[in-house]
């Protein structure tokens, strides 16, 4: 199969959805698409778009395509597994060095400034859609990156702000007067 083949993806739950074209190398980040590629021949995939059966917007799908296209040269999760089996290794302690190396590569992705730009204009709804798309397509680095990003944005934030960011209805609510009384008590007890 040609390495520079272009694959087409379309959200089948939305009839008006756009068709996204992605390089095969980039699409192979997704374990789901890799499995599809193994089971369908090239001519079939040339005629038909790969169906995405998840209710997300085109913008989110576009973002995911943008991410995999940018990081298409990143070692794929399946490649790593294949390397392990070639070397006769296991996931145990014997191959710790390789594991560490692989983690290092993923850490490079996470720390990349490009990702900061990638997530800069993303709101909570879009982030949620990217995350469920990445999870649906089983793109592990993107999933990890989204989790890391969520953790980063809620880190060091007060509970009220965490609720706003994650769109959570606060269930443990207190009145402003109760809040002020608790704060006074904390100051009195903790910092006396």
């Amino acid at each position: 199969m040609a390495a520079n083949q272009t694959l087409r993806l379309q959200n089948m739950l939305n009839p008006e959805s756009r068709v996204f074209e992605v390089d095969r190398v980039a699409a192979e980040h997704s374990t789901v698409i890799r499995t599809i590629l193994e089971h369908f021949d090239e001519s079939y995939l040339a005629e038909n778009a790969i169906p995405i059966l998840i209710d997300v917007s085109d913008d989110a799908l576009a973002k995911v395509c943008e991410w995999v296209t940018h990081w298409k040269d990143l070692p794929k999760a399946a490649d790593v597994v294949a390397d392990y089996s070639k070397q006769g290794g296991t996931h145990g302690t014997a191959n710790k060095a390789e594991e560490t190396e692989e983690e290092g590569t993923e850490n490079d992705v996470i720390d990349s400034p490009w990702n900061v730009v990638f997530f800069s204009g993303v709101d909570a709804k879009m982030l949620y859609e990217i995350l469920i798309t990445a999870n649906y397509l089983d793109i592990k680095p993107l999933c990890n990156l989204c989790c890391e990003f969520i953790a980063t944005i809620i880190r060091d934030k007060p509970i009220e702000e965490v609720c706003n960011i994650l769109c959570i209805d606060m269930e443990f609510t207190i009145t402003p007067e109760q809040g002020a009384a608790i704060r006074d008590k904390i100051i009195r007890d903790y910092y006396r």
Partner: peptide, 10 residues
Amino acid sequence: ISLIALSQTS
């Protein structure tokens, strides 16, 4: 710190 804050949201 954030772990406990998140556990106290809902």
